[in-house]
Computed example of a mutant assay.
Amino acid sequence: MGSRDLAGKGAIITGSSRGIGAATAQLIGARGAGVVVNYRAKAPRANKVVKGIEEAGGRAVAVQADLTESEGARALTDAAVENFGSLDLLVLNASGGMEADRGEDYALSLNRDAQVNMVKTAMPVMPRGAQIVFVTSHQAHFIHEVSTMDAYEPVARSKRAGEDALREMVPALDERGITLTVVSGDMIEGTITATLLNRAEPGAIEARREAAGKLYSVEEFAAEIAAMVGKEGLKQAHTELVGGAGDFLARSR
């Protein structure tokens, strides 16, 4: 894969002012894509990500958008087309629901409804050959077969609902020649979700580390997401289980 294989392409990475989204944005920017860095509230963090991409020779722009509001998706889509000429890659990384202050419907609103709305808004401007990547966790992907920590269950169920809703859109994506790829990872060391979970259930992360053998860092997981971007021969709606999911697969049989 050439180091500038995404030159001339436009990308949106939702929730990319920090963590996995920010690390993915850096990697995609380094491959030549123009990147829309999306943040909900923290402009300085997003601007820092943009600066990092630009310093590495890439192109990026920070755009404030709350994906749970309909105009949020429109703002991101418009920014990609206006700044970079096209929207060839949409990485659906933003997720949440552990926040106590956003109301009980927030997890479904963000993890399902906002994802579907983002795709519906983006699809009309995405060319044939474009790609949508939905980032999820093994805890969410396998929630129907394998139970998760109580504190995470509402988030896991809402993320699985989001994944299912996107899979239902495959016929529409097929018509437009757009590929959906699902990337599922385990708990990621150092993320806000892991921190909140460990606070809610002390020892939870340690237990996952033991069961999995290893938990990925933010940078390692971002590299796995980026490796799926533009990968040759990916089937429609392929699910990439990052770091294996042996204990989930064993328990879901």
Rank of each mutant, 00 (worst) to 15 (best):
H138I: 11
S147E: 15
S95V: 00
D186W: 09
S3I: 13
K48G: 07
L89K: 07
A212K: 12
S252L: 05
G15R: 03
Y152S: 03
L166T: 00
P171K: 00
A211S: 15
A165C: 00
S137L: 09
V36I: 14
Y152W: 14
Q236Y: 03
L6P: 01
E153Q: 15
L196D: 14
K120M: 10
S16R: 10
A130H: 04
A165W: 06
P127L: 06
M123T: 09
P44L: 05
A226M: 07
V242P: 01
R45I: 01
V133I: 14
T239E: 14
E163N: 01
K231D: 05
M123W: 06
G243D: 04
R199M: 13
A41R: 15
E153D: 13
L173P: 03
G233K: 11
N117G: 01
V218E: 12
R160N: 10
A211Q: 15
R102Y: 10
V229K: 02
D105H: 13
I13Y: 04
L166K: 00
G162T: 03
A140D: 08
A250F: 15
E163R: 01
I132P: 00
A60I: 05
N47Y: 07
E206R: 12
F134L: 15
V133W: 01
I188S: 08
D88H: 12
R112L: 11
L87A: 06
R167I: 01
R18K: 14
G34M: 12
F221S: 04
Y39S: 02
I28D: 05
A227F: 04
V36T: 10
R167G: 00
Q26Y: 12
S158R: 06
